[in-house]
Simulated assay, not measured.
Amino acid sequence: MIAILLAAAVAAVDLAARAWAKTRLPPEGIETGPVDLVLGYNSGVAFSLGADAPTAVVVVVTATITAGIAVAAWRVAPWGSRTLRAALALVLGGAVANLLDRCRDGIVTDYLHTGWWPTFNLADVAIVLGGALLVSSMWSREELSPPSVDRSHSAEGSA
């Protein structure tokens, strides 16, 4: 349940920030230090990959990937550690936010800019942080598979 709330919070905060950026961010942006606020749009996925692909194809592919992440999170929830569940929730929340934004007009709104990296958004940050947590959680052997099931009391084992 907490993982669902985390995913929903990530998506909600990012979508609210996008709405603010679209309506309130001045055309010249706002310098804030290492990460400036600059409005940008991406019709592709990460690093504008697939920007020339038909919008419907990009939406279907990203929706399929997002659904896969949701299924993985649902399947891991009963046995996964907090770290693993948090990682999947961050990735799912970011993916959902990007998908919902893309479904409106075929593009993703970005608003964070470093000057040396492509413009991105909070959903992208959540996806990257979730991915890093996912990788770090894999170092623990018990997090790689669900707990074993004791089959000694199954119908086949009883006489």
Rank of each mutant, 00 (worst) to 15 (best):
L25N: 08
A89F: 01
L90N: 03
L49H: 04
V59T: 04
A89T: 06
S48Q: 13
V57N: 06
L39R: 05
R24F: 00
A46V: 12
R75D: 03
A19V: 09
V38N: 01
A67M: 14
K22A: 05
A72D: 01
T23E: 10
R85Y: 03
A7H: 09
A8F: 09
A16P: 04
V35W: 04
R75V: 02
T23L: 13
L6Y: 01
S43V: 00
A12W: 07
V58Y: 02
G40V: 01
R82S: 12
G44E: 00
V59P: 02
A56S: 11
W74F: 15
A89M: 11
T64F: 11
G68P: 10
A73P: 07
T62S: 15
P34S: 12
S81G: 08
S81M: 13
V10Y: 04
P27F: 07
A56V: 13
T55N: 13
P34E: 11
T55H: 07
V58L: 09
L15P: 05
D36L: 04
A72T: 08
P34R: 10
V35E: 01
A87V: 05
V35G: 05
L25V: 07
K22H: 07
P26I: 04
L49G: 09
A21M: 06
G29S: 11
I30R: 13
W79Y: 11
V60S: 12
I30C: 09
I65P: 02
R24P: 02
A9S: 15
P27A: 14
W79E: 11
A67H: 10
D52R: 15
T62Q: 08
R24Q: 15
L90H: 03
L90D: 00
A56Q: 11
A72S: 12
R18N: 11
V13G: 06
A63Q: 10
R24V: 02
P78A: 14
T62G: 01
A9W: 06
W20V: 10
A46W: 07
W79P: 06
L90W: 01
V13D: 09
A19H: 13
L49K: 10
